[in-house]
Computed example of a mutant assay.
Amino acid sequence: MHVPEQIPDHLDFVGRGWHPLLTRLHEQLVAVSPSYSVQQVKEKYGTLRIHLYTGMLRHLNLGNTDWPDPDQAARYKDEDDAARALVHAAEQESARTCEACGNPGVPRDRAWIKTLCDDCAGHR
C-alpha cells in the first residue's frame, strides 16, 4: 500500500516558526482528506505555498484513468474545496507569522521577501 507524503514529511522546507501552523493545517486536512498527499511545501515572497493532491487530483495522480461516477466526483469536489480553503487560510496566516520563531511578523523586503518579527529581522 502506498503511504502518501503529508505535511509532517515536509516541515524542513520552511522555517521553524511556521511548523505549528503547518502541523495544525495537517490535522485539519486529515479531517477532510485523510489520504491527501503533498506535491510541494515552500516559502515564496514571504509566505507559505502549499500544493496538494486531494480528491480528483489524487484520484488521477494514483494512475486512475477512469472518470469517477457523478456521486464520487461530487465528493471529490467537496474534498478539494474544503482542502483549498484550509490551505488558503494557512497561507494567509503565514504572512502574519514570523517564519523564524512563530511570533507575529510582517513581510520584509530585503534581498528577498521574508516574513519576520522585529527581533528576528534585527538578527538578519
Rank of each mutant, 00 (worst) to 15 (best):
M1W: 06
H2P: 07
H2V: 06
V3Q: 13
V3A: 11
I7C: 03
P8L: 04
P8K: 00
P8R: 11
D9A: 10
F13C: 04
F13H: 13
F13I: 00
R16P: 08
W18L: 05
P20D: 08
P20M: 09
L21D: 09
L22C: 05
T23Q: 04
L25Y: 08
L25M: 07
L29T: 04
A31R: 12
A31V: 05
A31D: 09
V32C: 09
P34V: 03
P34C: 04
S35L: 03
S35T: 05
S35P: 01
S37W: 08
S37F: 06
S37M: 04
V38G: 06
Q40H: 05
K42W: 12
K44I: 02
Y45R: 03
Y45V: 01
Y45Q: 04
I50P: 10
Y53S: 05
M56L: 14
M56P: 08
L57N: 11
R58I: 00
L60M: 14
N61I: 00
L62D: 02
G63Q: 05
G63I: 03
N64L: 01
N64D: 04
W67G: 05
W67S: 12
P68K: 02
A74D: 11
A74T: 10
A74P: 03
R75P: 01
Y76T: 00
Y76P: 02
E79L: 01
E79I: 00
D80W: 06
D81S: 02
A82H: 01
R84K: 11
A85N: 05
A85S: 07
A85T: 03
A85V: 00
L86T: 06
V87Q: 09
A89C: 09
A90M: 10
A90K: 08
Q92L: 12
Q92G: 07
E93I: 09
S94M: 07
A95P: 09
E99H: 12
A100I: 11
C101P: 14
G102A: 09
P104S: 02
P107C: 07
D109A: 04
D109P: 09
R110S: 12
I113S: 14
I113P: 12
K114M: 15
T115V: 13
D118L: 13
D119P: 09
C120F: 15
A121C: 06
G122I: 10
H123I: 06
H123C: 10
